[in-house]
Design a binder for these strands. Structure first.
Lengths: 223, 223
DNA sequence: GTCTATATACAGATAGAC
DNA sequence: GTCTATCTGTATATAGAC
């Protein structure tokens, strides 16, 4: 549950923001950060008051300000803290030991599961909502998550193309289209709060359909 | 808490240009609605104060409350007012008079252009941000926009499949995947405020790539 | 309808005791 | 570090004059 090196560097650069290692922080610090997470992600930045955070965390406002210089600081710390490692299972996966279809299927299923989780949806919503005012935060999120996952798939597709297993002209574009299919309409509906549950059956059906379509489109000439 | 006024009529979307049916509302009403649009879409619901709307509209707060019962009402009216008809050019297009590739290409380009426009991005951001608190608003938006466009493409793909021009097992899934590819990573980056300009070249390249991949995947058996 | 002025509540942030 | 109490500004919404 430790932060990664990359994130540590980023956080060290942030103005006075403490690092994300839970264990070396007092209990009240963690309570504040968790309460901030629950409220900011549900109510947004402007919709969340420091009074509400203090109430939910079971501390006084002064305690919050002992740790965080401002509401903005608390928000940024909360976003950094909430960065989970679910993405890591995607870009660190050893895809080459699997067959092409199995590899793509694995990426599709895991990416979809991550993307449609309530936590991811809330985080993405609040980051998008604040993107105009905190572009650096959005950029950090993108690079730490979607970008790394996509880069990993691009690399994988490059190798697959070199081995002649698939006919892929531009692996980067192919990777973008693949993830686009996976995100797809279900993710949009989830972001809009229209589809309540992940509905495992529909997730699987869409993921499989995306993989099938990708494979058909990039079948090597011989087959 | 709903106002009895009717602002459900569809308005022309061009940013500064008032639509014809705006004329049946007094000038100050329109000023309020436009100011609300500029502020809510940029600052979000909670981040926008009625004082700020009044100031930008050049009216007093009391005037706003003469037209809208509450901040919530003003927000909803503003979203309904902003509903533009750019989507209509998509689901009303006569696709059958074109070849398959031309039809898909047209849908791809127009949908991408609509989706990456600043207005659409801001609207989508604020609707997503408020989705938890105003699910009905999100649902209306989805049905009026993405859902209708996708339904139109599903119908078109059904006809194309019946004519044997493409091999499509499930037109609804195919349509979802197609729009997923079109939205894709560029849209995510735009929503995060990372890609400043639509970058016509990249839009075209991605749209063309999506169409090409779709056609390759659904080539009829004979070819 | 439209304004000025205001009621009332709550926001972010701080002072000072312990 | 943690609290209670408070400062100062601003929020939504309304009263009442015209």
């Amino acid at each position: 549950m430790k932060a990664e090196r990359v994130e540590d560097e980023v956080q060290a650069g942030a103005d006075g923001a403490p690092a994300a290692d839970d264990a070396c922080h007092p209990a009240k610090y963690r309570q504040v950060l968790q309460a901030a997470g629950e409220l900011f992600l549900d109510q947004g930045f402007a919709g969340t008051s420091m009074d509400a955070v203090a109430r939910r965390a079971g501390v006084s406002k002064a305690t919050i300000y002992a740790y965080f210089a401002s509401k903005e600081d608390l928000f940024e710390a909360m976003v950094s803290h909430g960065k989970d490692e679910r993405f890591a299972t995607l870009y660190q996966a050893d895809l080459d030991s699997l067959g092409v279809e199995a590899a793509l299927s694995r990426v599709a299923h895991e990416f979809m599961a991550v993307l449609t989780s309530p936590q991811s949806l809330k985080t993405l919503r609040v980051i998008m909502a604040e993107a105009g005012r905190r572009p650096d935060l959005a950029a950090r999120f993108y690079r730490a998550g979607p970008d790394r996952v996509m880069a990993a798939l691009t690399d994988y597709l490059t190798r697959v193309a070199e081995r002649g297993e698939l006919a892929i002209e531009d692996p980067r574009i192919a990777s973008q289209l693949f993830f686009g299919m996976i995100r797809g309409d279900l993710h949009l509906r989830r972001m809009l709060g229209l589809a309540d549950q992940p509905d495992a059956a529909e997730v699987a059906r869409l993921a499989d359909a995306a993989v099938a379509m990708f494979l058909r489109a990039h079948r090597p000439a011989g087959q």
